[in-house]
């Protein structure tokens, strides 16, 4: 829990994107369809734009602040509300001031510009209320609880992301893949998002995991799929835990990208009952120091099978086979 050396209002700050205008070369303008952003998901999908050559996106925002509380308590003066658009991957940070709208100073509106070459993937958008408190100007007295995501490439405004899955012939692909020609799939965790490569040299593999074909094929496909997913989750977990940024005092930091998300998802199964930060510290300590890394493997495997829904797939397969047997004997 946090405490601050100055008073802060307790009411919530909320923010939403109300319009998005993209600008390209030669005065080209496009207003993004509201389907391109979701208040539920709090995501803006700029990849939805009709034209791909846009260079800037101006996001119109509307924020609500606990104005009445701020008025009554009276600790704060020179109140400003700012929106911050930032992306870790590009160290980009843009700040825009919002202006109060209406008499109560409850709603603040304005716009912030996203410069496309400054962004790679997903920027976060948040709102902060800044005021002079006890004679100190510029104090952050409140912030929006959940950041918006501004995704410069996605065409659907969803928070969850899918790993990339591609089909490729390992035998005829890039040279580095050829040594793996006997593997049905491979997980490459080095990109912006992990990529799963399905080896097309295995005839019918793709159709099988897609669940196409006869009943038997779809049962096998389901098992295969959960096997694949277990492999993937195990691989991404190891990548995530192996690539941690360690601070000078030895504290491992949750990575800002998909690695952090994967750890947040799987750590509660690897080290149950602890906060994610606590669990991360423990896993990192075991991996680097005290030699109990091997003892942790079953738990990582457990987390991966759970994440891959293996128990469910197995149950369904067993039931499916029984049914097939009954049909065969009937």
């Amino acid at each position: 829990m946090r405490a601050y050396p100055y008073p802060r209002p307790s009411g919530p700050v909320t923010m939403r994107v109300t319009a998005v205008r993209l600008s390209g070369p030669d005065e080209a303008r496009e207003d993004l369809d509201t389907k391109g952003y979701s208040v539920v998901e709090q995501v803006v999908a700029l990849g939805r734009a009709e034209r791909s050559d846009w260079e800037t996106a101006r996001l119109k925002l509307s924020a609500t602040v606990p104005a009445r509380e701020m008025e009554t308590k009276g600790h704060w003066s020179e109140v400003t509300v700012v929106a911050v658009l930032a992306e870790k991957a590009t160290n980009a940070r843009t700040v825009a001031r919002l202006e109060p709208e209406g008499p109560a100073n409850r709603e603040w509106t304005g716009s912030i510009m996203l410069v496309r070459p400054d962004h790679l993937d997903r920027a976060t958008l948040s709102v902060h209320v800044v005021a002079t408190v006890d004679g100190v100007p510029g104090r952050i007295i409140a912030s929006s609880e959940r950041d918006w995501m501004v995704d410069v490439t996605a065409d659907v405004p969803l928070r969850d992301r899918q790993l990339d899955v591609v089909t490729v012939s390992f035998a005829r692909a890039a040279e580095w893949l050829r040594p793996f020609r006997d593997a049905p799939w491979m997980v490459d965790t080095s990109g912006r998002m992990p990529t799963v490569r399905l080896n097309t040299d295995f005839d019918g593999l793709t159709a099988l995991v897609q669940g196409a074909g006869t009943k038997v094929e779809s049962l096998v496909g389901e098992m295969l799929l959960s096997q694949l997913c277990t492999d993937v989750w195990t691989a991404v977990f190891h990548t995530a835990i192996g690539d941690l940024e360690i601070e000078d005092d030895g504290t491992p930091l949750l990575p800002p990208d998909w690695r952090g998300e994967v750890l947040r998802e799987m750590l509660p199964d690897v080290v149950p009952g602890r906060s994610v930060e606590d669990a991360l510290r423990e896993v990192h300590a075991r991996r680097t120091g005290d030699g109990t890394w091997a003892e942790l493997q079953p738990r990582i495997h457990y987390a991966a099978t759970r994440r891959a829904e293996v128990p469910k797939a197995l149950g369904e397969t067993v039931r499916g086979i029984e049914r097939l047997d009954q049909e065969a004997t009937a």
Binding site: R159, D160, R161, Q162, L163, D164, V165, V166, T167, M193, V196, L198, T206, A207, V209, Q210, G211, L225, L228, C229, V232, W258, G260, E261, V262, R264, E265, M266, L267, P268, D269, P272, R306, R307, A308, E309
Partner: peptide, 21 residues
């Protein structure tokens, strides 16, 4: 596009822990 939709659907990253085990 490449017939891997079902696989991708199972490989979502949300940052949310799975239901409590």
């Amino acid at each position: 596009s490449n017939g891997t939709g079902k696989v991708r659907k199972r490989l979502k990253v949300s940052g949310k822990a799975a239901a409590k085990g």
